[in-house]
Design a protein around this nucleic acid. Structure first.
Lengths: 204, 204
DNA sequence: GACACTTCTTAACATAGGTCAATTTTTGAT
DNA sequence: ATCAAAAATTGACCTATGTTAAGAAGTGTC
């Protein structure tokens, strides 16, 4: 469920969006005037669903504040695949690209604000401003690199190694994400994560 | 090591390249005249290295014939991540995008011919023909979808389930890829794949 | 601040897949 | 066709993680 807010808030968030976007795609004032028409600022409360399985992902979003969790349901169990924090993209990307039903749920892990660009608007941009393909390309390239790192991790590391690397590289996950979701992100059960944490604690 | 061939062969392969590319990116004759200047046809014998770990991936390639294997070395062991057959892209993509050293080796699994577009040429294209960003975007989108499916598989399926799905969806892998590589692609040891195959055989 | 609800931890036991070592089968070179 | 090398299989045993069940520690609500 989407939440509402004031015009002033909306404008502020749009400015933030441009700033956060800057690293991926620095836009001239002129370009921004075009782009910003296509952005929708969306606000969610902790626990709200941003996207549900089976829906087409219509938005490519950048997280302005808060964080989101991407997961899928399998045999009655949740499997967490991604967490998106400020400055990162949040999108069920395969669904977005193909405009096919998403296998993933996206849920607000905390209160959060997203700047979301609509699929149709992006297609229009691609058509009328060919250089905007660069935006789509850059976004998906970022996504791709992330996915590849995840896959390498899943293929080559033990659960404990993944946990240790997570602590080192993304301590924010430890701080913000409930352990049961982290466990599933590490591809183990919460009980196994507990054991690993206990063992690491005892060893030091 | 790259192999050589005649002018006629070269021209033929260029034509094939355009055809194979068509599904990803239909090009007008005019566009093709520009694109084809950037393509290099490369031919390898079975076992040749197309890219080694530590090298920057300079080419985005489409497989015209034969097949390639992408793998990385970890603790003295090979881990296979991808096989690319005719019509598919073959590229150490993160390295290509970031122009940073590749973690992957790419090896000719059979004699093969690739149509490869050079990184620099592609950047020029992006610059001078903004619509060509669409090519880069489409290629990486394909890659992304593939990576996501792999990740879902690794996260949610047992080795046996992965093997069965492979048999069903990509029987060509069974036919063309040595079991030791398939095992590593399924993220298990050859001994375990043997056991799975034996069990499946006895059950029917 | 008491209660209910969720999350986290612990322990005992089960299992998929890993390890090691030996054997069989396949492949490739001559 | 023969032989050596590589790939695939098998069996005995091991280990990390899963399963189940219980209890402890948080958290949010009135």
């Amino acid at each position: 469920m989407e939440r509402t807010f004031s015009d002033d808030e909306y404008k502020l968030h749009l400015i933030q969006a441009r700033e956060l976007l800057y690293d991926y795609l620095p836009l001239t004032d002129e370009q921004w005037e075009v782009f910003k028409q296509g952005f929708k600022i969306r606000k969610y409360h902790k626990g709200d669903f941003i996207l549900s399985e089976g829906e087409n992902e219509r938005f490519l979003s950048i997280v302005i504040s808060g964080c989101t969790r991407h997961y899928l349901m399998l045999k009655g169990e949740e499997k967490s695949f991604d967490f998106s924090f400020q400055h990162e993209f949040s999108c069920s990307y395969s669904s977005f690209i193909q405009q096919e039903p998403s296998r993933f749920f996206i849920q607000a892990l905390d209160d959060c604000v997203l700047a979301s660009i609509h699929y149709d608007f992006l297609q229009e941009l691609y058509l009328h401003y060919p250089e905007s393909n660069k935006f789509g390309r850059t976004a998906v390239e970022q996504y791709y690199i992330w996915r590849e790192l995840r896959e390498i991790s899943l293929m080559t590391e033990s659960a404990q190694e993944r946990y240790l690397r997570l602590m080192e590289k993304h301590p924010i996950y430890l701080a913000q994400v409930p352990l049961k979701y982290l466990a599933s992100y590490l591809n183990i059960k919460p009980e196994s994560l507990s054991r690993i944490r206990k063992k690491l604690f005892e060893e030091r």
